[in-house]
Simulated assay, not measured.
Amino acid sequence: MSAQSHSNGYIDPNWPDPNGSQDAPIIIYGYHPSFAIALLAALLFTLSLVLHAYQIIRYRTLYLCTIPIALILEVLGYVFRSLSARQDPYSLIWFVLQYFFIVTAPVFLSAAIYAVLSVLINKVGKKYSPIPPKLVLGVFISSDAVMTVVQICGAAMIGAAESKDKDPTTGKNILMAGLAVQVFSFFIFLILLGVVLWRSRNALLGLRAFIFAFVAATMLVYVRTCFRLAEVAQGVKAYLFTHEDFFACLEFAPIAVAMLLFNVFHPGRYLRKESDEVAGGTSGEEKV
């Protein structure tokens, strides 16, 4: 499929602008989004959603209820992205909706990660953590929530400016500020996680597989957040934003793998309360 880049933005001659009331004069993505990627993502996240819903009930892990929320948002985001790909890549509303859902979803996954560390601290002993487990939840979830609102506002301003061929600098600066604080906050969380795991290493000998999966999922979410910051720093019409390969490898793939890791190494299997372990006749160190 041929494509053309114009001074005012990207258009695809095989998909002429339908000039609808909700259409931008350019394809804001910077490329024609792939229907195959959007469909694959929607299917994978739907499968993971079904499994997580079952696992939350099976293992009674209500503290992981934010994961299904994240998955629902991911599915919605990729559904709207598929509409952009198949029906109208110029649609401003579909671009904004897919961006909103896909950008917001990982925040709920991060909340689950914070909750898992909090539960892990309670399981191995609060003495291993520099701060109380409840404070872990309060500080990091609050930071993510506020910064996500900031990012959404910035992204909306960028989309509106690009659709009207205006300067998106203000929106970009707001979005960058939100992402920068989020990256910094998550980095502090990684330090806290490292401290807890190092101090409690002798108490975690039977949980090595789970800890490895948990750390891997956490790092994947962090990589995705760093990618978003780099993407915005370059600009909407720059290389990272306008090449879908980066989106697929550094947005879709990290979150998909992280979600699936939580399916396979579900915290409910490893971080059960002692009463649940006895009642279920299993060990909290159950292997996959």
Rank of each mutant, 00 (worst) to 15 (best):
M1I: 14
Y114T: 03
L205Y: 07
V264W: 09
G206A: 06
S129P: 03
Y114S: 07
I67Q: 13
I11S: 13
N122G: 14
P133V: 15
Y54S: 04
E285A: 06
L137K: 09
G77W: 06
Y29P: 12
T61V: 15
A85R: 06
Y270I: 07
P13C: 09
A180R: 03
S5I: 15
L207T: 08
L47H: 11
P13T: 12
G154L: 05
S21Y: 06
E251G: 12
K126Y: 10
L193H: 11
V196S: 12
R208L: 09
I67E: 08
A3E: 13
N173Y: 04
V195F: 14
S34Y: 13
I255E: 12
S163P: 03
I113S: 05
D144V: 00
A279I: 03
R201I: 08
L97Q: 01
Q87A: 06
L39Q: 06
L193F: 09
F214K: 05
A145W: 12
L76R: 02
A145E: 09
P133N: 01
P16D: 07
V257F: 10
T66H: 08
L64M: 11
F265M: 05
I67H: 08
V288L: 15
A112Q: 05
R86H: 13
V79L: 04
T218S: 15
A38Y: 12
D144T: 00
A160K: 00
G30E: 10
A38I: 04
S129W: 11
N173A: 03
L175P: 02
V236R: 00
D17Q: 04
T242H: 07
L271V: 07
S21V: 03
E74V: 01
F95S: 00
G20K: 01
A253G: 07
K273N: 09
Q55V: 11
E251N: 12
L204A: 12
S200Q: 08
L205P: 01
V183F: 08
A177Y: 00
L175H: 00
L192W: 11
Q22G: 10
F186C: 08
S48T: 15
A70R: 06
L43K: 03
S185G: 08
I174Y: 02
I141T: 03
C226G: 13
Q98F: 02
Y78Q: 02
L109H: 09
V196M: 13
F212S: 11
G138E: 06
F100L: 02
V223M: 08
